[in-house]
Amino acid sequence: MKLFNILLTSYILVICLYLNSKAEPITECKPNDIKINETFAISKKTVIYTAPNKNSKKLVNETVSKILKTTHYHTLDYSSTVNAICSRDDYVFIIISTHSAPNETSGWIPKSSLRIINKTSKGQRIYTIQDIYWDEYTSNNKKQFTNAINYLHQHNTLCMKNIDPETLTKSPSKSTKNHPIYFVTCGNSNEMRNVFFDTHDMREWSSIMSK
């Protein structure tokens, strides 16, 4: 009975801590704030705040916190893309929709966390080394792989719609000892599939992209 009471007390304490840690209402843009309305990448890992100052509360990821029964915060990293709506002092109000956050998650982050997204004359994003997930199979040739990502995004019909640089890696099923095959996932949710290529393709595409 004593053990049961201890466990029950611990459980209640965890629940109370979780409930008390929920984020306060988010401060949104005001008429005097500087309007931005542009899309940016993220230059460094950062948390999202509920107001435009370092003393405000961090934005709680309520879904993850509820599942794990402990407080977890929304964070952004180099793989994130945000819509910057306005700025106030050294902070920007952003809206995100990524794999790690629900649609329309919003809050404030430091301006220094933003990274400009360069685009082609046709408006297509130009990916950089910072945008791509590197593993043991791809990190030895970042420049050619980055060229491959950009070539596919600009010339492959499926990848022109959407390309996920985080999925770049070597194919375990198609590769052989002397002939590695790589892939990246392209397409929107209803037509998503892997696009495969090899080192010969990368050399050819790099030559095209360097012109």
Rank of each mutant, 00 (worst) to 15 (best):
M1H: 09
K2I: 03
L3F: 02
I6K: 12
L8N: 13
T9L: 15
T9F: 15
S10Y: 09
L13A: 11
C16Y: 07
C16N: 11
L17N: 13
L17R: 07
N20E: 07
S21W: 05
S21G: 10
S21V: 04
S21K: 09
A23Q: 04
E28C: 10
P31W: 05
I34R: 15
I36R: 00
N37I: 08
N37R: 05
N37Y: 09
E38S: 11
T39C: 09
F40T: 05
F40P: 06
V47L: 01
T50H: 08
T50W: 07
A51L: 07
N53G: 11
S56I: 12
S56N: 11
K57Y: 01
L59I: 07
N61P: 08
T63Y: 05
T63K: 08
T63H: 05
T63Q: 09
K66E: 06
K66D: 09
K66W: 12
K69E: 02
K69F: 10
T71W: 00
Y73S: 03
H74A: 01
L76F: 02
S79T: 14
S79M: 13
T81R: 11
T81Q: 08
T81D: 02
V82T: 02
V82N: 03
V82K: 01
V82D: 00
N83H: 09
A84V: 15
C86I: 04
C86S: 07
C86P: 06
R88S: 13
R88A: 08
D90H: 11
Y91G: 09
V92I: 11
F93W: 05
F93S: 02
I94Y: 00
I94Q: 00
I95T: 04
I96V: 15
S97V: 05
S97N: 15
H99N: 08
H99S: 14
S100Y: 04
S100H: 07
P102Q: 11
N103M: 12
N103I: 11
T105I: 03
S106W: 01
G107D: 03
W108Y: 12
I109V: 14
S113L: 00
S113C: 04
R115N: 00
I116P: 06
N118W: 01
S121K: 14
K122L: 14
G123L: 13
Q124T: 15
I126C: 06
I129W: 00
I129N: 00
Y133S: 05
E136L: 03
Q144L: 14
F145P: 12
I149L: 13
I149S: 08
H153E: 13
Q154C: 08
N156P: 04
T157G: 09
L158F: 02
L158C: 04
C159T: 08
M160Y: 03
K161M: 06
K161L: 10
I163Q: 01
I163C: 00
D164N: 06
E166F: 12
K170G: 03
P172F: 11
S173M: 14
S173I: 14
K174N: 10
S175P: 03
S175L: 07
S175M: 07
H179L: 04
P180R: 02
F183N: 12
F183L: 10
V184G: 02
S189P: 03
S189I: 15
N190G: 02
M192N: 01
R193N: 12
N194C: 02
V195A: 09
F196S: 10
D198H: 03
D198Y: 03
H200R: 12
H200F: 13
M202V: 09
S206I: 06
I208F: 15
K211H: 15
